[in-house]
Nucleic acid binder design. Sequence first.
DNA 1: GAAACGATTATCT
DNA 2: GATAATCGTTTCA
Length: 206
Amino acid sequence: MPAGMRLPWHSGVAPAFSFPRGFLLRPVTQVARDLLGARLTSTAGGERTVGVIVECEAYGGLDDPASHAATRKGLTARNRTMFGPAGRAYVYQSYGVHWCVNVVTGRPNDPQAVLLRGLEPLEGEDVMILRRFGRRPTAAGPGRLCQALGVDGTLDGHDLRRSPLLLEPGWHVPDELVGVSARIGVRLAADRPNRFFVRDSRGVTP
DNA sequence: GAAACGATTATCT
DNA sequence: GATAATCGTTTCA
């Protein structure tokens, strides 16, 4: 059995109908864990592309030194979306080159977010590959994920319940398929096990 | 104002 | 494994 063929979205079971009430208002590490298996649909640019989230990282509130919203920074022009309501997209540019998208969680003025780092294509993989100029892996890594979905800074603050970028429930990923580690590319708070990923998925950072 | 620095990736050896 | 690309945000003078 090839890697990635035993995952829930390959089982033929229909995805969940809705998120539990208050899903995004729980502690951000718990939200990150449970966003594994959720679906992300982009219709940016008119082409429909859908993926299932297989890797993400939790960025805690004011007490997380690695967060853009750490206490010593507070509210800034860049991170203001994190201070807004849950369910919005926080999109920022990394290294002046790559767009990265987060799901904002928690209550307003309690800035928490989940960085989406890896996706397994469900629909429109051909379009994703074209957007990536043929490069692979298709959507493993936050910059690649945004490129594959056509996400850029114009979507910062976007309500993820609506097109063109829609976050929906998917499949439960059992604990034995979930890996946990320190966050990638972060020097501060390297001891926090805030990265969650689906073992053996091709959408996870190599 | 100026300068340093990334929640990264592609491409080279 | 090393490094360039590339620019907005943040920090410091």
